[in-house]
Amino acid sequence: MPGVDASAESIGSILLTRSEHDRLNRAELYYATPDMTALALAAAATPPTEPMTLRRLPSEAGMIVFGEPIGGYTEDVAAVFAGALAGNSVAPAVVTTPIVAVSWSVWSPQAVALDQGSVRWTFRGQGRTGTIPPDFRGVWLTFYSPRGIFSGLAPETEIATMPDGAVITAGAIDATRATHGPVLGWDNEMLLREGAAFGPAQPDTTELWSHVLYTAWQLMGHDGKNQWAEVEDVPRARAGQKRDRRQGITASGAVRIVRVHPGRRPSPKAAAEDAEASTGRREPQWSCRWPVRPYRRNTCMNPRAHGAGECEHEDRIVPGHIKGPEGKPLRTGSTVHLWDSQPAAEA
């Protein structure tokens, strides 16, 4: 813990790190298959129309890894190393960082208590600054990208030249980083206020990524004739569960695999054509998979009270036109997604 003269930023970073560690220890684990990821992206092309509601969360705390990136952003190497290699030569190269996982937990005044006191949180980002109200209630999201800044570049790509003439390559940097830390790294975070409306979002922002996550929650929550997803609990190995318990991880010993319901899946040919058009570092394409994208319909849940304004509305995802016979699997076989191909220069 920092001393009494520590800055508010250093204290806040430690508290956030502790809170992140705590919620990941109790987070339920989810994996959205590539077809489920593409479906969430297709439906999220328009923002959710219902206000953000905690009822949509599949668990109070969780982490989901997507089979394909839900977004990404590009940076120039010079910007990545700004100040870090002062006076050295930095080669021109643009890298694309994919967003492939999100963790969440409910944020409330009780969630930020410290030693029977309270913490006043401020936020900064998207050109805005302010203080989070003490009665704020909503969801705290953290977005993750794969470890390795330059994992999508050829290992021999020259990144910088040191004063002594030594050349630093992309492979050398990522090999060093690979020996430290987890497979996924923190990228960004945000808060969603309960009851707040979703609106249009700029590309490559946390707002847009949150639309995809919330849409995935919506799809997972539909049932009956409106069912879009099926969830399978896959138990983890006993050795892994024992290791978790020793480290204080209290979540269940299973990973929930989220797939598109068999009745909603397009043909393998359409999926293959879409995969061919995707870069592996950005959102997958779905021009073949969903020629007419799934769309939202704001549905009244109590029509009898609609006239009096006492009803409640929620989003329902309506199917678009899907190629291929119903019930056919999207893909066959097992695929490991490395997110290791940078987009072409003209992309």
Rank of each mutant, 00 (worst) to 15 (best):
M1D: 11
M1W: 02
M1P: 13
D5Q: 05
A6N: 02
A6H: 04
E9R: 13
S13D: 04
R18I: 03
E20C: 05
E20P: 00
R26V: 00
E28T: 15
Y31L: 14
A32W: 01
D35C: 09
D35H: 02
T37N: 01
A38D: 01
A42H: 03
L54I: 01
L54D: 06
R55D: 14
L57M: 10
P58H: 15
P58I: 09
S59Y: 07
P69A: 11
P69I: 02
G72E: 10
Y73T: 04
E75C: 07
V77A: 15
V77Q: 03
A79P: 00
A82M: 05
N88K: 08
N88V: 09
N88P: 00
A91D: 07
T96G: 07
T96H: 11
P98S: 12
I99Q: 06
I99H: 09
S103D: 14
S103A: 14
S105F: 10
S105H: 13
S108H: 05
P109E: 09
V112K: 08
A113I: 01
G117N: 08
R120W: 01
R124L: 06
Q126R: 12
R128S: 04
R128I: 02
T129V: 14
P134A: 11
D135Y: 03
F136T: 11
R137L: 07
G138P: 03
G138E: 08
W140H: 10
T142R: 15
S145F: 03
I149M: 10
F150A: 04
S151L: 14
A154C: 03
A154S: 08
E158W: 00
M162V: 02
I168Q: 13
A170S: 06
A178V: 03
A178P: 01
T179A: 11
H180G: 02
P182A: 13
W186V: 06
N188V: 00
L192S: 09
R193M: 13
A196L: 04
A196S: 15
G199C: 02
P203M: 07
P203N: 10
D204C: 05
E207T: 12
H211C: 02
H211R: 15
H211G: 02
V212S: 10
W217C: 10
G221D: 14
W228K: 11
A237K: 10
R238M: 06
A239Y: 01
Q241G: 01
D244C: 08
R245V: 13
V258C: 03
R259C: 03
P262D: 04
P262Y: 06
R264W: 05
S267N: 05
P268Q: 12
K269F: 11
A270H: 12
A271N: 12
A272F: 08
A275M: 10
E276G: 08
E276R: 15
S278H: 05
R282Y: 00
S287R: 15
C288I: 00
C288T: 02
W290A: 09
R296Q: 04
N302M: 10
A305H: 11
A305R: 15
G307V: 04
E314K: 11
G320T: 11
G320M: 08
P325A: 13
K328W: 05
K328T: 13
L330Y: 00
G333I: 06
S334G: 07
T335R: 15
H337N: 12
W339A: 11
D340W: 06
D340F: 00
Q342F: 01
A344M: 12
A344R: 13
A345F: 08
E346W: 09
